[in-house]
Design a protein around this nucleic acid. Structure first.
Lengths: 332, 332
DNA sequence: CCAGTTATACTCACAATGAGCATTAAATGC
DNA sequence: GCATTTAATGCTCATTGTGAGTATAACTGG
C-alpha cells in the first residue's frame, strides 16, 4: 500500500489562485500522523510501522470529512486497529522537514490517541514498541537511567564547543534546566525540550542525518531514531500525555474495564517515567471518587488479593475538564 | 488589499499527485488566523479587522517560511502591529466552515499572541475590541452578568425542545456543568464549551446564519457575532489563555516594563473574568519571586502610593515550563 | 484636621500533601 | 503446619498551601 504518493512537479509554478494575491499560493498537501499509545504491564507502548521506524501516517485526502477522520482512516488502514478518542497534538509546515528537497509545502498535523493494546496486524512491520526505546533517558522509575551519564558528558562537550562565554553559560543553564542537574530538578514533562536540545547538540541520529553526517566513532546511546521527524512528534505526544494525566482522568483509557489500584498506579508510573508513593496514590484516587469497586478481586497478585475497581465514567460529566489530579504535581 | 484571493475552480478535478494513491488528494489551501490579545486597564482586548467583524487572517503563501512566519506576516501587513511570542491554538479542516460552498478544502491554523496595545493602523476598520463584547456572559468580575439570565432561559427552552427524556436529562446536565448552575460551579476555562453549547442550541447568530435562519422575533443577547468561525477561534484563544495564566507566567507579556501589584492583579482578573483575593494574590506573587521592585513608586493610585515592580525574566530560565501559579486554581 | 482610598503586613483555620509505620491477607517454600 | 514473602490496606503526623479576615500605613481632596 503506497503511503506517500509519488510527488509530481506539475502545477507548481502557475497557480491561477495566485493572480489576485500578493504572493503565489503554494502547492499544498497535508500529512496526518498518529501517536497511538497503550500501556502493557509497566511499559508504555506506541503503534508503529516498518518495525518501529515510523508512526502511522498518510496524506489528507478528498474523501476525508475532517482531519481527525483522516487520521482514523489511515491508522485503521495501516494497522487494522480501531481507535477511540483522539486529540490534536500540533501542526507545522516548517521547511526543515527531512529528506524532502521538494519545494512543495507539506503541512503536518499530528494526533494523539489512547487505547488498549491489541495484537497488531496489517502490513508486515506493524507492531507495538515501548516508547523508552526511543527515549531511554526518559525513564526514571529505577532512579537515574544509565544512559544519562554519557548524554550529559556529550552535552558538556557541546557546551564547550561554543565560542563565547555567554553562549557557553546559556547552554550550561539550558542543559541544567531541561535535564534537571546542577541543583535543578527533573521535570518529566519536558520530554520535547530535551529531545530538541539533543537534536540541536547533534546528539540524535536525526540531526546528523540532516547534515549528511553520520556518527562515526562517536557511538551515541541516544535511543532509536525514526524516519522524518516522527520521533519529535512522539516526544510531543509523550510530553502532552505526561502533562495531561495530572489534571484529567485519561489514564483510564489505557486500562481494561476492571483493574486494581496497583495496575492503575503502574500505568501512571509508566507514562510519567517516575514512581509515586503507593499509599498516597490510593488516598488521592479514593478521595476523588474516580473509581468504584466492581466487587471482584484479583488474586494473582503474588500477595494479598486486591480489590478490582472500575472507572466511574460519570466523573467525565461531573468535571468535564476539571481537576482529577494524580500525585505527580510535586517531586517524588 | 485583497485578503482572500478569489477562488478558482480550475485544477480541482485532475490532480496528478493523486494517481498512485487510493483516493485523490484535494486541492488544499491553508488559512492562518490570529488571536492577538492585549489588556488595557481592566479590559482584555483583541486585534480585529472590519470594525470587529474578523480576526487578522490570510492564506499560507509560498513566501512563508513556516506557518508562524505566515501569521506574523499577515498580522503585520493587515494591522501594522509587530508581534512578540505567538503560539499555536488549533488546526481544523472540517467541511462545516461557513459561507464556503466551494468543495476545495481549507485547513485553518489559528495562533494566539500576547502584546501591549498600540494604536491600531492599517486598513480602515482595524482596531482593538474588548473581548467581552463577543462573550458578555464570560465576565463574572461584578458577580453574575445580567445576560446570563436570558441565556439560561433560552437554554432551558432548548432542553425542552428535545424529544426524549434521556436527551432532556443529558442537555440539562450539560447546561448545568458548562454554565456552573444547579449546584455546579462556574469554571472560567470552559469558554469554548459554552460557546459551542450556545451554537448547538441555535442561540448565537453564527449557527442561525449557517441554516439560513435569522433570529426574527427572538432577539438574542448573546454577544456580537464574527465572520466565518472567528468567534469560535476567539473562544478557543480565551480558553487557552485562561488555562495558561494559572501555570505559566504569561500575564507579564501583557504588561509594561514596570507595573504595580494592582495592575498585575487587574490584568489577571480581566483575562479570567473573575476577581481574586488581593492580599493572597500579593502573597503568592511575592512568594514565587516572579517580580522584583524597580525602586520606583506609582503615586497616581488614589491612595497610598504603590511600589513598582518588574517581571524577573530570569524565572523563564529557571522554570521553563514550571509552575508559576496564580490564585485561580480554586474558586473565589 | 477629616474622610476616603489604596497599599501592605500579619494572623488564623483548615485542606492538601509527602513520608512513614502498622496491620492484614493471601501465596510459597520447607 | 509454619515461617517467609508479597502485596493490600489503614492510619498518623508534620509541613505546606490556601482562603479569609483584621489591622495598619500612606497618600488625596476637602
Amino acid at each position: 500500500m503506497p503511503i506517500h504518493p509519488p510527488r509530481s512537479d506539475a502545477l507548481t509554478d502557475t497557480n491561477p489562485a495566485s493572480v489576485a494575491t500578493t504572493r503565489p499560493l503554494p502547492q499544498l498537501s497535508a500529512e496526518l500522523i498518529a501517536v497511538i499509545v497503550a500501556v502493557t504491564g509497566d511499559s508504555p507502548r506506541i503503534l508503529t510501522l516498518d518495525r518501529g521506524l515510523r508512526l502511522p501516517s498518510g496524506p489528507f485526502e478528498t474523501g476525508h470529512r475532517s482531519l481527525q477522520a483522516g487520521v482514523r482512516s489511515w491508522v485503521e488502514r495501516q494497522t487494522h486497529h480501531a481507535l477511540g478518542h483522539i486529540e490534536q497534538l500540533y501542526t507545522f509546515a516548517d521547511q526543515d522537514r527531512l529528506e524532502d528537497p521538494d519545494p512543495k509545502q507539506v503541512i503536518s498535523v499530528s494526533y494523539l490517541g489512547l487505547t488498549l493494546e491489541a495484537p497488531a496486524s496489517g502490513d508486515p512491520g506493524v507492531g507495538w514498541q515501548g516508547w523508552y526505546r526511543y527515549f531511554p533517558w526518559e525513564d526514571h522509575r529505577q532512579g537515574l537511567p544509565g544512559v544519562l551519564g554519557p548524554i550529559l558528558d556529550a552535552l558538556e562537550q557541546w557546551v564547550h564547543r561554543a565560542h563565547s562565554v555567554e553562549v557557553r553559560r546559556a547552554r550550561t543553564r539550558r542543559v541544567h534546566h531541561t535535564f534537571g542537574v546542577g541543583g535543578e530538578r527533573w521535570n518529566e514533562e519536558w520530554t520535547l525540550q530535551r529531545y530538541e536540545l539533543l537534536y540541536e547538540a547533534g546528539l540524535v541520529q536525526e540531526s546528523l542525518r540532516r547534515q549528511n553526517r553520520f556518527p562515526a566513532e562517536r557511538r551515541l546511546a541516544t535511543g532509536e531514531a525514526m524516519q522524518h521527524d516522527h520521533r519529535r512528534i512522539l516526544a510531543t505526544g509523550i510530553a502532552r500525555l505526561r502533562a495531561k494525566i495530572k489534571y484529567r482522568p485519561v489514564v483510564f483509557e489505557l486500562l481494561p474495564e476492571a483493574f486494581t489500584y496497583l495496575r492503575l498506579q503502574k500505568a501512571v508510573e509508566a507514562l510519567a517515567g517516575r514512581r509515586v508513593h503507593k499509599q498516597n496514590f490510593r488516598r488521592l484516587i479514593a478521595f476523588q471518587k474516580l473509581v468504584e469497586p466492581t466487587g471482584g478481586m484479583e488474586n494473582k497478585t503474588g500477595g494479598r488479593p486486591a480489590r478490582l475497581y472500575r472507572f466511574r465514567r460519570a466523573v467525565l460529566q461531573e468535571r468535564i475538564m476539571a481537576g482529577s489530579k494524580l500525585p505527580l504535581a510535586r517531586l517524588e
